[in-house]
């Protein structure tokens, strides 16, 4: 997804301007019609359906579903889990990107592959691993029970599962970005007498701020929306260990469709805000990025 940060000139103009790189109008419109029909069917309609279903029984039902105590508890827990998981992975992501992008060492590619691992592991397995470690029959189960510490089927397990599934987001955005920027600027700062922190704050951070923000909002969206991993470790205790997605599931399975879609609509709004910020970040990155001049001179 690193490429998504690249500048976005409307390249269509230069293709449509030349006979050699454009199709007959009927081909263009046929392709557009098929592609947009597919887009509408699979992406647009599910999104719209969430809001229509949420409001099917009117605004009053909608709001009462959101302020109901169990719903509020699930919102609090979701915010808490994301509030812990995102900062942890932010610090990790910056450290990993600093080590990988600014230094040469053996096994670097292998390390990047390991960091990517959580993306290719099923979320269900992400939950399972913590049950195997901290559950009643797990490795640390007896010890935890003896000390009266609950991790699985309690909040710490939910936080751990959330950290796992959002692990690579920030690192994955920053590594290619910092590699592309090289290390001359930082080296100059250090040679001129700045210490490590000063160099990071005043040289590196301004260069990576858009990539960092982008990684954080993606990380946050996934942290708040995670379902499979959290479902395995949650134990589904109403009002205690239900996050918003789990609350949606419970309401849905109890045939309280309007209430389920009402809570779901909050998560859908979060997704829309995430996409909005992402688009905004991309535009800013394009403006301040190295490609800014090209954009001005593009035909």
């Amino acid at each position: 997804m690193a490429t998504a940060l690249r500048r976005r000139v409307d390249p269509a103009a230069r293709f449509e301007a030349r006979a050699a790189t454009r199709e007959a109008p009927w081909v263009k419109w046929a392709l557009l019609a098929v592609a947009l029909a597919f887009f509408t069917l699979f992406l647009l309609m599910p999104l719209i359906a969430v809001f229509i279903e949420a409001l099917r029984k009117g605004w009053e039902t909608y709001f009462s579903a959101l302020v109901e105590p169990d719903a509020l508890a699930s919102i609090r827990l979701t915010l808490l889990a994301a509030g812990i998981a995102v900062p942890l992975n932010l610090v990790f992501g910056v450290a990993a990107a600093w080590a990988i992008a600014k230094f040469e060492f053996r096994g670097k590619h292998f390390l990047i592959t390991l960091i990517d691992l959580p993306f290719s592991v099923s979320p269900v397995i992400a939950g399972l691993v913590y049950v195997l470690m901290f559950g009643a029959q797990g490795w640390f189960g007896p010890w935890l029970a003896a000390h009266d510490i609950k991790i699985v089927f309690a909040v710490p397990g939910i936080v751990l599962a959330t950290v796992f599934v959002t692990f690579p987001f920030v690192a994955r955005e920053l590594i290619p970005l910092m590699q592309a920027q090289g290390r001359e600027e930082e080296e100059a700062a250090v040679v001129l007498g700045a210490n490590g922190w000063l160099t990071f704050w005043h040289v590196t951070l301004p260069n990576i701020r858009w990539g960092l923000l982008y990684g954080v909002i993606l990380c946050n969206a996934r942290a708040m929306g995670e379902f499979g991993a959290v479902s395995v470790v949650s134990g589904h205790i109403r009002g205690e260990t239900n996050t918003m997605p789990l609350h949606v599931e419970i309401l849905y399975n109890e045939y309280q469709f309007a209430a389920a879609f009402a809570v779901a609509s909050l998560l859908a709004l979060l997704a829309l805000v995430t996409l909005g910020i992402k688009t905004w970040v991309e535009r800013n990155a394009a403006r301040s990025g190295p490609g800014a001049q090209d954009e001005a001179t593009a035909p």
Binding site: L43, A49, E53, L218, M224, G225, F227, F257
Partner: peptide
């Protein structure tokens, strides 16, 4: 359209699941 292509990355899977089921 370009912005919404990433919707499946941003929309929680449970929300996508119940929306598709309703459709």
């Amino acid at each position: 359209v370009d912005a919404l292509i990433d919707l499946p990355f941003a929309l929680p899977t449970a929300v996508a699941g119940i929306a598709l089921t309703a459709l």
